[in-house]
Design a protein around this nucleic acid. Structure first.
Lengths: 237, 237
DNA sequence: TGCACATTAGCCATTTCTGGTGAGGACAAT
DNA sequence: ATTGTCCTCACCAGAAATGGCTAATGTGCA
């Protein structure tokens, strides 16, 4: 089975188009013997790539009703680091419970696992498996495959990055230390006056840093600059 | 060897203190038969955790001279997704070349590999191995262990998260759809007028969303609110 | 040496944001 | 049935940010 995984990862790496990748990924259903495979990624440009082996009805319904706004799987994806079983989420509230029933009806299994993956420029992707089985069986499944799920998530993200040429779009924006400081303090909620005080420079000087950072980042205003710097990992909150 | 890796990952998971983790990680030198192991992570609070098996002289020199500002390994860490060999970086520029020679002198090997890992709240960590050998040997080493390096990076990050109680600090703030929209558009660089236009509501209404979002997030101003929402994964750029 | 860039500092006019207060309707939960 | 939350709209005064100017110093690179 180990070799099967290696073979799969290699196949992912060798995909030359997204269509081809779709097919390879869908093949995971057979490898893992599960009902569905879902993969979606959001890059910084905002154009998402999504793949799911769900019925079209459910996919359309989901999209049309903007169910991602209440889907606990999606909502917690951005908060998690480790792969998480869908059972570990809170399905208490009414909208979530209704969503769960709708999903069951739409062919989604009662069990699932999601692997969140983060890339350098605020890219985010979520790789999920869904299945129908008992809690016990699913726990065993997860314990067995956790590491492999992580690797698959990583390789899929890498493949999408490559196929969408995200790698090369990396405009190497480097901020000067002072510019970084300025954005960090503003992102922490200080106004210019207090930030300048904190850095022991005049407010006028601070403005120069903000503006040069804005210029470098191609940002329209301070908020935009801070947001971009955060998303690009240039500063941390 | 596979089982050795599993055993290692398990040991990482069972660490109860950072000191213990240090020891376990240092043990990687024996497992991989390399000169040095380096791990550092930056969380959202800004207090970093760092571990390196380097000589103290080099570590102090590095810290004192703020060499991370010119270290290509660190600089490119924020741009990369896949593990990268240090040889693949650009050592052309003068400061980088000078740094490389200093590092060799400081006991760092001529080869290295780094694995960047990103967590949910802008956390970032870098797990690296350094060794002294030929390019060929190092290529073979990397091809052999790539997947394991990824897994180790992930598990280390997870362990540090747990030991620093980052997981639990997640106060689950939920924004309404409109609040989310508002912050997202502001984070994308729009001013209130255009954002309101985009959402087809009056600017006055938009302000209400911004302010209620500010209140919920405990933010001092719009920039702070957008930054917090981004850091908490409530919006995406 | 000259060029680029980081760092520091200031002024003025205009635009934008913030704080405080108020109000009505829709919808869901208890 | 009432409480709560969300969505919508409005005014006003004061605070803050922005755009457009100039200009000194020091450092590093070509």
């Amino acid at each position: 089975m180990q070799s099967q995984m290696e073979a799969f990862l290699e196949r992912v790496e060798q995909c030359k188009t997204l269509v081809e990748l779709n097919q390879v990924v869908a093949g995971l259903r057979d490898i893992f013997q599960v009902n569905h495979v879902i993969y979606h990624s959001v890059n910084s440009e905002g154009d998402p790539y999504a793949l799911a082996t769900y019925d079209e009805d459910w996919a359309e319904h989901y999209e049309k009703e903007e169910l991602y706004r209440i889907d606990p799987v999606v909502l917690s994806a951005f908060q998690r680091f480790n792969p998480y079983s869908w059972k570990s989420l809170s399905w208490e509230k009414k909208p979530a419970r209704r969503f769960f029933l709708e999903a069951l009806d739409g062919g989604v299994g009662n069990q699932g696992v999601s692997v969140p993956i983060r890339g350098p420029h605020g890219e985010f992707s979520l790789f999920s498996l869904s299945h129908t089985c008992s809690d016990e069986e699913w726990s065993k499944f997860l314990a067995n495959w956790m590491s492999d799920l992580l690797l698959i998530g990583h390789y899929l993200h890498a493949a999408v990055r490559t196929l969408e040429n995200i790698e090369e779009e990396t405009e190497y924006v480097s901020l000067s230390p002072r510019e970084t400081d300025a954005l960090r303090l503003l992102g922490a909620g200080m106004n210019r006056g207090r930030a300048a005080e904190h850095l022991k420079i005049s407010e006028h000087t601070l403005r120069v840093y903000i503006e040069s950072a804005r210029f470098k980042l191609g940002a329209a205003n301070t908020t935009h600059a801070v947001a971009k710097a955060l998303a690009q990992g240039l500063i941390h909150l």
